[in-house]
């Protein structure tokens, strides 16, 4: 029983990390029809930013706050310099340009932070283990789960209860219509892009104490994140949640139960969804 609870918590923790990454990607995707393969690189940048901020401030929370801001700033630069002009360029050009960005980021981070794996310590508040459902589970990982749930809730409130949320939903549904309704679509895209980047940065900062921080950590997580986005349905919060949970749990349980089957099955699931329900399981558009 303990085994199952621990694995379920591990699965949940991975799902939350995937959620933080995929939600930004999926809303950018759904709203702007923009494919950002460099989203994983922004996550890496967040992790490194956290490493540096922790070193400078001496506390984990320095990184926790700084990383999302730093990555959002990188998002501003990216958006104004490149993304804005690629928006209407068609998916292939977007894939290529953001693929190029992966390369650039990869080496920029190697130049700035070196090739060796870095890490940061867990915050003192959440060190050690806590008792949950009869098992002792690392407190910091529980924090990740809690944070993920909080972000989910926050985004749900943002999307369903606020004006900007209504605009985003309108834009995902039909951007031309949204423009007709007087929504400043350009500005909306910009804001959403930056929020997406900030969440990627947050994911990096949160992952840094658990995983080792390396230049290619983003490339490794990019594919699972894209799978989450596509399985869930582009632009859909519900889809990102469902997709994160599915991928997180299949990966976690698969790794311990049937390693060979599990990793293939995620891709098989993706292929099946793309072929039979190309719009994803929870499409945002009606």
């Amino acid at each position: 029983m303990t085994f199952w609870i621990v694995q379920a918590l591990n699965g949940l923790q991975l799902s939350m990390l995937l959620f933080l990454l995929s939600i930004g990607l999926t809303v950018i995707f759904g709203l702007m029809h923009f494919v950002n393969l460099a989203h994983g690189a922004l996550y890496t940048l967040g992790a490194y930013a956290a490493v540096s901020a922790v070193a400078a401030t001496g506390t984990y929370w320095g990184g926790f706050v700084f990383a999302p801001l730093a990555v959002a700033m990188a998002g501003v630069v990216l958006y104004t310099g490149l993304i804005r002009r690629m928006r209407k360029a068609g998916p292939m050009s977007q894939v290529l340009v953001t693929f190029g960005l992966i390369f650039v980021f990869l080496d920029l981070m190697r130049i700035t932070w070196g090739d060796l794996a870095l890490s940061i310590a867990e915050p003192t508040l959440f060190t050690g283990r806590s008792e949950l459902l009869g098992v002792a589970y690392p407190t910091y990982r529980l924090f990740i789960i809690g944070l993920g749930l909080a972000v989910m809730l926050g985004l749900w409130v943002l999307l369903s209860r606020t004006q900007i949320g209504a605009m985003i939903r309108a834009g995902v549904d039909n951007d031309q219509m949204a423009a007709c309704l007087g929504i400043n679509v350009e500005r909306l895209f910009f804001i959403v892009f930056c929020i997406g980047c900030a969440l990627a940065g947050l994911a990096g900062a949160v992952a840094a104490p658990v995983l080792s921080v390396t230049p290619d950590m983003g490339t490794q997580i990019l594919i699972p994140t894209l799978i989450v986005v596509v399985i869930g349905g582009l632009g859909s919060l519900k889809g990102a949640i469902a997709g994160s949970l599915m991928v997180g749990f299949i990966q976690t349980f698969g790794a311990v139960l049937a390693p060979q089957l599990a990793s293939v099955s995620i891709y098989a699931l993706l292929a099946a969804v793309l072929i039979f329900r190309p719009a994803g399981l929870f499409p945002a558009k009606a």
């Binding site: 292939m92 060979q260 990793s263 098989a268 993706l270 292929a271």
Partner: peptide, 29 residues
């Protein structure tokens, strides 16, 4: 044959999925 119904970004993603399936299969085997 399997991807011929899809186009644009969905085609790219489906090919990515099949490619990674092969990669992971070999990697784990």
């Amino acid at each position: 044959a399997v991807t011929s119904k899809t186009s644009g970004i969905f085609f790219i993603m489906t090919t990515l999925a099949f490619g990674q399936m092969v990669y992971v299969y070999v990697f784990e085997n």
